[in-house]
Amino acid sequence: MSEKTLTGRRALVTGSLQGIGLAIARELGRQGCTLVLHGLASDTLARDACAAVLEAGAPAVEVLTHNLRDASQVQLLMEATLATSPLDILVNNAGIQHTAPLADMPRATWDDIIAINLSAAFDTMRLALPQMARRGYGRVINIASVHGLVASVHKAPYVAAKFGMVGLSRVAALEYANAGSRESGGVTVNCICPGWTETAIIQPQIDARAQQLGTGREAAIRDLLKEKQPSQRTSLPDEIARVVTWLCEPAAHNLTGVSLPIDGGWTAQ
């Protein structure tokens, strides 16, 4: 992929102060995008994220801190984003997780996971897509999960939200499929469905497995992944980010409504 393929574009990435979201923001910045970062974090983490995105090559960056649990806050997030200039790329990455058997899952936890992982994406999309369609170019990329394609125990609200994200994305893709043109780039809506990805959230599981087996990190990862991910390799956040930026290229104008697993063969089984 050539450098600076997204010069002049502007992107909002939710949940982008660390992890996969920050990797996506950096890669978009590297391709010339102006960035709107989003997240609930310390001032230090926000400053570090901005610095990383600017260092990658973004012409400008700002941070918004609205709480996606609250629909009115999502509305304000989008109003703030769209107040200064149009939005070309929307990446719905923000998400939370909690594991417990269905019978023991607190109702408040269900509400929070559905609100952040699904309802917030509905609101950002319904507010962003019409202005994308008017200009003939837009990219919505929803970071779902392998759990938007297959289920696992003890993850009822997370799996429900991610399956919902896949269905929501397909509906939006159909509704906006004929917006724009090949020349303008069109408007597309897609999901990326990562399997095991190296973020801070899985490090405790890797450490625990290494201690249990008395092995090194790589052997612990292979053992941890062997039941689900046939490659026995994790993905890196930067690898997920490269797929996002490719989907933003004009050449991807006819790639819409897909749910792309990056899961080492998990869902091929």
Rank of each mutant, 00 (worst) to 15 (best):
L77S: 07
Q229R: 03
S231N: 08
A71F: 01
V53R: 09
D104I: 03
V36Q: 14
A51G: 13
N190C: 06
A128P: 08
K4N: 15
A11H: 09
A120H: 02
S235C: 12
E183Y: 03
I89G: 10
I114Y: 04
A71W: 00
S119R: 10
W196H: 12
L40Y: 00
G32S: 10
G8S: 11
Q212T: 09
G95E: 11
E62D: 14
S72Y: 00
A241M: 08
K228L: 13
G95L: 06
K155Q: 14
C191M: 00
T44R: 14
P250I: 02
V189T: 06
T256M: 02
S169Q: 05
G138T: 01
A200D: 14
A219C: 03
I262Y: 01
L37T: 09
Q269H: 12
A179T: 05
E198Q: 11
Q232K: 15
L45N: 13
E218G: 03
A83E: 15
T124I: 04
T99R: 15
R9I: 07
R135T: 05
A179M: 01
P59V: 06
R182C: 11
T34N: 08
E3G: 13
D111E: 15
C33F: 05
T81C: 14
S16D: 09
E227G: 11
D112Q: 14
R26F: 06
L64P: 02
G186C: 07
A177Y: 04
V159S: 05
S42K: 03
I202C: 02
V53L: 10
A210R: 00
R217G: 06
A60F: 00
L118T: 02
S184L: 08
I114G: 09
T84W: 00
F163Q: 07
I240R: 08
D263K: 08
E79V: 11
P86D: 10
E175F: 08
Q211K: 14
A156F: 07
M125I: 14
Q212W: 00
E218T: 12
L64A: 05
A252E: 03
T124V: 03
L260W: 05
L118P: 07
Q203K: 12
A80S: 15
I221N: 05
V159I: 11
T267I: 12
